[in-house]
Design a protein around this nucleic acid. Structure first.
Lengths: 228, 228
DNA sequence: GCAGGGCGTTAAGGAACCGTCAAGGATCGG
DNA sequence: CCGATCCTTGACGGTTCCTTAACGCCCTGC
C-alpha cells in the first residue's frame, strides 16, 4: 500500500485530502506542522509527501531540505503563493512538484501518480557512517567524535552535500562528474578542482590521517569512493 | 553534458528556450513537431524533453506515449490550456510535469532541475566475474581478493573499460577492433599494440599465472575472449 | 632451417590528474 | 559598516596514467 504523508495546518484541507486519497486506496498519515511531519516521516517513512508551505513554525522549504537529507520520497508542495521565486526555492530545495491553490483535486491526484510512477525507492539510504574516529549522521547533520559526546567538528553546507552523495553509495565508485552534477547542478561537470579542494577539507576534518585516507578514497582518473 | 530536447512549433518560443538553456550549459536539440521530435529522440536519446502540447500533426499526448515506450527521460509539458482534464491526460500518459503558459522562465528551469535530479542514470547493465582469485565487480568498480576482504588490486580507467567490454560478452570472442572502438573510439582501430600492453597489465593484476591465463584468453589472429 | 608476422614484456617520456595552499569575492549577521 | 564564514579560482609540485618504441618469443609457411 502506498503511504502518503500530508502536511497542512488547515483541518479542512487536511480532511479533504485525506478522504480523497483514502478513497483511492492510499494509506494516509497527517501532520499539522513541519516538526511533527519530520518526526512522523522518520518513524514510518512515507512513499510520498504532500506539503503545504504556509505552515506555523518551521519554514516549509526547510522541511523539504531536512527530509531530503535522508529520504528520496517525492514531495509535492501546495501553496497559496504563485510567485516564481517561491516555486524555485521549493523546487531547488528538493521538491518534485509545486501546485498553487486553488487547485483541482483530480489534477493533484494525477501529479501524485506522476511522481509515484518512477522507479520506486531505490536502494535503502544509509543514514550514518563512521569515518576515522567520527560518527557522521546524515539525518541530523551532526558529526560526533566517537567516545566523546561533543559535536567537535562542523561541516559547511557544500561539504555535507558531497559527503551525502558519497555515503549514500557505500563501497561504490562515484565519478567526479556525478558529484559535481549532484552538488553544483548541470554545467559544472568540468570544475574538478572544486572536488579536490572540498575533499581535502573533508578529509582534514574527518580522517585520522588526512594524507592517507582510509574511508574517503581517490580512484585516480575515475572518481571517489566511500569505504565503510 | 545534459541533453534537452525542446519540441515547439512557435519559432519564438523555441528560440527563447534554446538560448536560456544553452546559457545554463545544457546541450539543446529542437524539433518543430511530434514526428521530428520522436525521430530526433530515437537517434540521440535526450536526458529530458520539454514538449509543447499545441503541436501540428500528432497530438502531444500521443508523443508522450510513443516516447514512453522506450525512454524514461523526464518530460515537461508546456501548454496554453489550464483545464484539469488536459493536465491529467498528459500526466497519466507519462509526463513528469505540466506548466501552463504564460510561465516564468526561471520557474521552468527550476522544474527542469527538479525532474533531472532524480536517479538520473539508468545504470548500464553491468555484472561481476571471477578471474584468478579475484572477484571483479563492474557496478562498484572494485576488485576484491576472494577470501580476504581488502581491495588489494586497483585498475586504471582504461583497464576498467577493456575489462567491461570483455566481461559483458562472457565466453564469446571479441575482436581487437571492437575493443579498440569501444574504448578509444573511432580512428584507433589499428593500434593493436595498446591491447597487448593493457591485456598484459590486466593479466598481471588479476590472473593467477599471467603467463598462462585461464580467463582472459588470446585467440591468435582473431581477438580476445573472457572465459568465466 | 629461416624469414616474417602476431603476441607478450618492459621501460621511458610526456600528458593528465590529484593534493595542497593561498588569495579574492560573495554572503550573512551584527 | 565591519567581521566571519564560506565559496570560488589560480598556481605549483608530486603522482598516476597513457602513449610509444624497442626487443624477444612462438608459431607458421616456405
Amino acid at each position: 500500500m502506498t503511504r502518503v504523508l500530508i502536511v497542512d495546518d488547515e483541518p479542512q484541507m487536511l480532511r479533504a485530502l485525506q478522504i480523497n486519497l483514502q478513497a483511492r486506496q492510499y494509506t494516509v498519515a497527517t501532520a499539522p506542522d513541519g516538526t511533527r511531519a519530520l518526526d512522523d516521516a522518520a518513524r514510518t517513512p512515507p512513499d510520498a509527501v504532500i506539503l503545504d508551505l504556509g505552515l506555523p513554525g518551521i519554514d516549509g522549504v526547510d522541511v523539504i531540505r531536512a527530509l531530503r537529507v535522508w529520504s528520496t520520497a517525492p514531495v509535492i508542495v501546495l501553496s497559496g503563493r504563485s510567485d516564481a521565486a517561491d516555486k524555485i526555492a521549493a523546487l531547488d530545495a528538493g521538491a518534485d512538484d509545486y501546485v498553487t491553490k486553488p487547485f483541482s483535486m483530480s489534477e493533484l491526484l494525477a501529479r501524485l501518480r506522476a511522481v509515484l510512477r518512477r522507479p520506486a525507492t531505490e536502494e535503502p539510504i544509509a543514514g550514518s557512517a563512521v569515518i576515522g574516529d567520527h560518527l557522521v549522521d546524515l539525518t541530523s547533520c551532526t558529526v560526533r567524535r566517537i567516545g566523546a559526546g561533543e559535536p567537535a567538528v562542523r561541516l559547511t553546507p557544500t561539504e555535507w552535500r558531497i559527503l551525502t552523495v558519497l555515503i549514500q553509495h557505500p563501497g561504490r565508485l562515484v565519478t567526479g562528474r556525478h558529484i559535481l552534477l549532484s552538488v553544483w547542478g548541470p554545467g559544472h561537470e568540468r570544475k574538478t578542482n572544486y572536488l579536490r579542494v572540498y575533499l581535502a577539507g573533508i578529509r582534514r576534518k574527518l580522517e585520522r590521517d588526512p594524507a592517507h585516507p582510509r574511508h574517503l578514497l581517490t580512484e585516480p582518473g575515475m572518481g571517489y569512493r566511500f569505504e565503510p
